[in-house]
Simulated scan of single mutants.
Amino acid sequence: MNLLIFGATGGTGRQLVTQALAQGHTVTAFVRQPAKLAISHANLRLAQGDVLDYAAVQQAMPGHEAVLSALGAPAPQKDALRSDGTRHILRAMTEAGVPRFICLTTLGMGDSKAALPALYKYVLVPLFLRHAFADSEIQEQYIRQSPVQWTIARPATLTDGPRTGQYQHGFPATAKGLRMKIARADVADFMLRQLHEATYLRQAASLSY
């Protein structure tokens, strides 16, 4: 497939690019700073731009069959990168007729809030992640209101471990015995699998080991 990937220079985004290319997809990586990606491949094209610049997103969109987003920002950052960037992506997809959108958010959104460990609920989110979580909530609202064929991936705490293919997905917030962490490589594995599956079409799936 011809894929457009946003957030390609982040940890999960880089895994999306690498795994998609290994699977034979043609990839356009939308990046602000191309040098940060440091991946070279015959089927990789770079589109330089800022996701907060709608004209740049609009220009990059035509000709793709699916879009994957791993947009993220450091916790202290107070802009609306996730929500505004996603709004731009969805608008451009609708205009260009690109049907499939697979987006990374985080465990703790919507009906998955109860799955968060107490440390996150009562310490980390209120003190350090409040803005990031609020922006992700708005991001998910935009996705749910969109006419595209969307899937949301909500991973637990991200790690840099290897891809295992052995993880839990779509579990209820009351599930027990989860490790509440997952490697970025396995998150990318899940997101790419959704290109060929309809299990989570217009649904959000929680991810963890």
Rank of each mutant, 00 (worst) to 15 (best):
1 M>C: 08
2 N>T: 11
3 L>N: 08
3 L>T: 00
5 I>Q: 08
5 I>G: 11
7 G>N: 02
8 A>L: 03
9 T>L: 03
10 G>H: 03
10 G>S: 04
11 G>N: 10
11 G>S: 01
11 G>K: 09
13 G>L: 00
17 V>D: 01
17 V>C: 03
21 L>Y: 00
21 L>R: 03
23 Q>H: 01
23 Q>D: 11
25 H>S: 00
25 H>M: 00
26 T>W: 03
27 V>F: 00
28 T>I: 07
29 A>W: 02
29 A>V: 02
31 V>L: 04
32 R>E: 13
35 A>W: 15
35 A>P: 06
39 I>C: 04
42 A>H: 09
44 L>T: 11
44 L>N: 09
53 D>A: 13
54 Y>L: 11
55 A>T: 14
58 Q>A: 15
63 G>I: 02
63 G>L: 14
64 H>I: 07
65 E>Y: 07
73 A>V: 05
73 A>R: 14
81 L>C: 09
82 R>F: 15
88 H>T: 02
89 I>R: 10
96 A>L: 11
99 P>N: 08
103 C>H: 13
104 L>S: 07
105 T>I: 11
111 D>W: 04
115 A>T: 07
116 L>P: 12
118 A>F: 15
119 L>C: 06
120 Y>W: 13
122 Y>T: 15
124 L>A: 11
126 P>L: 13
128 F>W: 12
130 R>L: 15
131 H>F: 10
132 A>R: 08
133 F>Y: 15
136 S>R: 14
136 S>G: 14
139 Q>V: 02
140 E>A: 12
141 Q>S: 09
141 Q>G: 13
142 Y>W: 12
145 Q>V: 04
145 Q>T: 01
147 P>N: 05
148 V>F: 02
149 Q>N: 14
149 Q>W: 13
155 P>K: 07
158 L>C: 04
159 T>W: 09
161 G>P: 05
163 R>W: 01
170 G>P: 06
173 A>P: 05
174 T>K: 11
175 A>Q: 11
175 A>P: 05
177 G>A: 11
179 R>V: 12
181 K>Y: 10
182 I>D: 03
184 R>W: 06
185 A>M: 00
186 D>I: 01
190 F>M: 03
192 L>W: 06
193 R>C: 07
204 A>L: 04
209 Y>H: 03
